[in-house]
Design a protein around this nucleic acid. Structure first.
Lengths: 228, 228
DNA sequence: CCAAAAGTGTTTCACTTACACCCATGA
DNA sequence: TCATGGGTGTAAGTGAAACACTTTTGG
């Protein structure tokens, strides 16, 4: 059991990094410099080293390839088709990541590896089976957002309810009723209403809110329903 | 990219096989014949070969170690702590499996490897991190059973509603109201009511039902709520 | 005063929950 | 006739969905 009868598959991680801006849900891609799929856009990712966990590998690859550092990660699937990589047998563990776009918009563009954001509905042709991975990630995000308040990971610390609503609309890909949305999200009692309001806008200033992680942790034991 | 800078982790699969009988939810374990953890009970599983998918590896290991053949499998997690295997770095992909206990009750006991069923609440001390894997599998099963009718995988083709209710009670680990359960499960319109009834029982004979996979497939696009 | 987004309640309908008794069968 | 599980309906409460106008601000 310390020697092996069989050759091993290689293990990689791939990560679908989501951000949201005015244009909706965005995904971070890198352009490959080497074959196969040279010149194609692809998900950031790479091989898992023997002395790191899967999450550590994912964070390391994101740092190296896209300079993304603060990111909420969730593993969501395994991609293991025998021929998904033409070079050799590679099994990939897929995660999605959520970042506050403003933090990362510029960094990604200035990193050595060519990285860029694309609209989630408007991805270029991707290397390997990355299109399938990205599509699975969106489905997973849609389903996860109903049972956990992960959406807040995508917003700045202070935000207005309209921003939050736009975020959920982008993720769920359907319009939500304003009054019902506010009623429900406030009823969860996870938001702290701040004194501050928006400034310098040509219309009524919006009240700002902050996600109250303390209240969330208190609620989280027992699970709850976040569906909208 | 065809040679590697870094040594590779080994990739394994582990499977939490669930069955249900009168005593409730059961889990299938094998007793280890070799070190480490010699003599301990463990989840069936083993190394993934280079020419098989993760699901194929899981099915192969189940066949080899427990003679379990017909099983509904779902991957649910990755166990990747650096030191989870004392021999070397091993990353494991965990699945749970659902079997009709009657099919497998005897086979498991007669296979070469020593295998046996244990009450899910009454597991022995397990090898490696298998206790954590089994516990995660139960949680996952509880949550999955709310969104998909996987419970039927655990029952014989023809069953009575009381059996189905006992099954859900075993999985969810709480009592359910008989009238509400029947109302809801019939309202889903996934069951075909058979002409046949139970026989040779010392009380009123129960009507038998069959899961209608056709109707399920029709409903499945759009997703639905199976919570009880 | 106009444009643009913020903010606010009520009604309807569907679903969930709680709850107790009679029925059929074999021993 | 008794013991055992099978089978049935209703009322009250909760949550989801639909829906339109007034407020505030800067230009």
């Amino acid at each position: 059991m310390t020697t092996y009868e069989y050759p091993r598959a290689a293990l990689t991680v791939d990560c679908v990094v989501f951000g949201v801006d005015e244009a909706g849900l965005q995904i971070l891609l890198i352009q490959r410099g080497i074959a196969p799929f040279r010149g194609f856009w692809a998900l950031p990712g790479g091989f898992v080293r023997i002395d790191e966990t899967v999450e550590e590998a994912t964070r390391r690859e994101l740092r190296e390839e896209t300079a993304v550092e603060r990111v909420h990660l969730e593993q969501f699937g395994i991609f293991d088709a025998i021929d998904r990589d033409p070079r050799e047998r590679v099994i990939s563990i897929a995660s999605y990541g959520l970042v506050k776009l403003l933090d990362h918009r510029i960094k990604a563009a200035t990193d050595a590896a060519k990285a860029a954001w694309f609209g989630a509905d408007d991805l270029p042709r991707l290397a390997f089976d990355h299109a399938a991975i990205a599509s699975a990630a969106r489905k997973q995000l849609q389903s996860k957002v109903r049972s956990e308040p992960i959406g807040f990971e995508l917003l700045p610390p202070k935000f207005k309810l309209t921003q939050l609503q736009r975020l959920y609309e982008a993720i769920l890909d359907r319009p939500l009723d304003k009054r019902n949305f506010r009623k429900k999200v406030l009823a969860l009692d996870l938001l702290e209403e701040l004194e501050e309001v928006e400034e310098d806008v040509a219309h009524r200033a919006a009240r700002l809110y902050r996600f109250d992680e303390r209240k969330y942790r208190a609620l989280t034991k027992g699970g709850f329903d976040f569906s909208l």
